[in-house]
């Protein structure tokens, strides 16, 4: 009875059921596989989060983004005249998350790599690239850098999946891949 003291005073010397031992071993092996899979994927997998990130500030990050926008804007979209920025392949690309949009729109080339810097100017946000389904936590004061290589063309949505206030569900951005 599990609600009474063990029937043997020296319970830790009692034999263990064979089934229990077998299961513990099987389960342990699987747990080790689960662990080893992560370093394995760091070596052989292509989808790994970089370890590159920097402390930054809203002003600094906004200024860097503005510089890129000034340099590489090719047109604007929608009534809000959101700049569409087409930076050269391999370059540093900046994306701002703020209440409530991802800014600016990025136009990238297929199969080219970009160093994408992302940060928040205010609260925490969730970078969620759809339908590719890459999801990152974006924090203010921290600049996340990932090297991204789009392999499909089309227009992709960036939604916000960290709650950031009453306009959270209006926070969208866009990446166009040509």
């Amino acid at each position: 009875m599990s609600i009474m003291p063990p029937s043997h005073r020296v319970w830790w010397n009692q034999p263990i059921h064979k089934i229990e031992v077998t299961w513990v071993i099987i389960a342990l092996v699987w747990c080790l596989v689960l662990f080893l899979w992560m370093p394995y994927w760091h070596v052989y997998g292509e989808q790994n989060l970089s370890n590159e990130s920097y402390k930054t500030s809203a002003e600094l990050f906004e200024a860097k983004t503005q510089r890129m926008v000034d340099k590489y804007t090719v047109r604007t979209e929608s009534e809000a005249e959101i700049p569409v920025v087409a930076p050269p392949a391999g370059s540093d690309v900046y994306l701002v998350g703020r209440l409530w949009d991802w800014w600016p729109i990025l136009e990238l080339e297929k199969d080219k790599s970009y160093r994408v810097h992302i940060s928040s100017l205010d609260y925490q946000h969730g970078f969620s690239l759809q339908p590719v389904n890459i999801n990152l936590q974006i924090l203010p004061q921290y600049e996340t850098v990932i090297t991204l290589t789009p392999t499909t063309t089309g227009s992709f949505g960036i939604i916000c999946n960290e709650y950031c206030g009453v306009g959270h569900h209006q926070m969208l951005g866009k990446i166009i891949v040509k």
């Binding site: 929608s78 959101i82 969730g126 339908p131 949505g157 916000c160 709650y163 569900h169």
Partner: peptide, 23 residues
């Protein structure tokens, strides 16, 4: 699994400046 966010009032993004349509 198809990317729908948690803690989100409107996955149809009705009043947003940009649009995205889920599957």
């Amino acid at each position: 699994t198809l990317g729908v966010p948690r803690r989100h009032w409107d996955v149809n993004f009705t009043d947003a400046a940009l649009q995205y349509e889920f599957a």
